[in-house]
Design a protein around this nucleic acid. Structure first.
Length: 268
DNA sequence: AACCCCGTCAACCGCTACTAT
DNA sequence: GATAGTAGCGGTTGACGGGGT
């Protein structure tokens, strides 16, 4: 279909922003607010592409930005969020007030990666570097059988919050990303048949969930963590996490409520 | 002083998702 | 449903500065 260029390249400045350009952008946004980036440069008298203006404002000029070094607490928070969300820098940034996705991404690549390597952890998977993955089926049949029995027991108890497994996996950061074992009620999918069949593989029956998670090479705590599943094997059935969460509205007891809450939080 | 190497980070680019028509 | 326009995301690039030789 062809896309028109976002700006006239011949008449736009590139590279580092000057103080004057910054001031023009700030004063324009102070008066007119954010948004409509395409028309902003012309209206503000800037010879810049709209995208460039947006980036400059979001990553550098916004008044609520927290400049300066990352604290040890922020480091640990980033590591934990990354272990849950993967390279979803904007989602991670959403949990760190005053920090931008670009800033966190750069910081990750320059500092945290090295920090994790020095701890003997793979920065992508957050697992020990020397650990073999995924687990070989034959070596773990007994363990799988045990987990399957525990899961079935849990369903029979009529409880499906999955919180204990969450706590195993991430005790301090509770993003409530868990998908617990479902009730036996028939789900009514609000999503497409394709999406629903994928969700069903994970959630409609303990044995199926176990098979899929096992196939993915996940361990017990990972079984019910969608973000982990997508991260560990690059398995992202719905395009992205936000879309995935929108699809998870089938009956799952209290989990449904918890996921709805998460959806709202992530959207913020 | 001159050069090189490397780390950092602002900015860019290409792409996808979303929205409007 | 198809098409076009826009916003936003994540990977990559390149300028810059500091340290070493």
């Amino acid at each position: 279909m062809g896309r028109s260029p976002c700006c006239e390249k011949a008449h736009t400045n590139k590279g580092a922003w000057t103080k004057e350009e910054d001031e023009r952008l700030i004063s324009y946004i102070k008066v007119h607010g954010e948004g409509c980036w395409r028309s902003l440069p012309k209206a503000a008298g800037l010879l810049r592409c709209g995208k460039s203006c947006r980036l400059r404002w979001i990553n550098y000029l916004r008044p609520d930005l927290k400049r300066g070094n990352f604290t040890e607490e922020e480091d640990e928070l980033i590591i934990k969020l990354h272990s849950l969300l993967g390279n979803k820098w904007s989602l991670i940034a959403g949990r760190l007030p005053g920090r931008t996705d670009n800033e966190i991404k750069n910081y990750w690549n320059t500092h945290i990666k090295r920090k994790l390597l020095s701890r003997g952890l793979d920065p992508q998977t957050h697992r020990p570097l020397n650990r073999a993955a995924p687990i070989a089926l034959s070596e773990n049949l007994r363990a799988v059988d045990k987990v399957a029995r525990e899961m079935t027991d849990s369903v029979e108890d009529g409880h499906s919050s999955g919180t204990s497994m969450d706590e195993d996996h991430s005790s301090e950061i509770n993003l409530e990303l868990s998908i617990s074992l479902p009730y036996s009620t028939s789900p009514k999918p609000p999503c497409s048949p394709d999406q629903f069949s994928t969700i069903n593989k994970v959630a409609s029956a303990p044995s199926q969930a176990l098979c899929l998670c096992y196939d993915l090479g996940l361990q017990r705590g990972d079984c019910f963590n969608l973000a982990s599943a997508t991260r560990l094997r690059g398995w992202n059935p719905f395009g992205n996490l936000a879309t995935a969460l929108q699809g998870l509205e089938f009956p799952l007891g209290e989990t449904e409520t918890r996921l709805a809450k998460l959806k709202v939080e992530l959207a913020q």
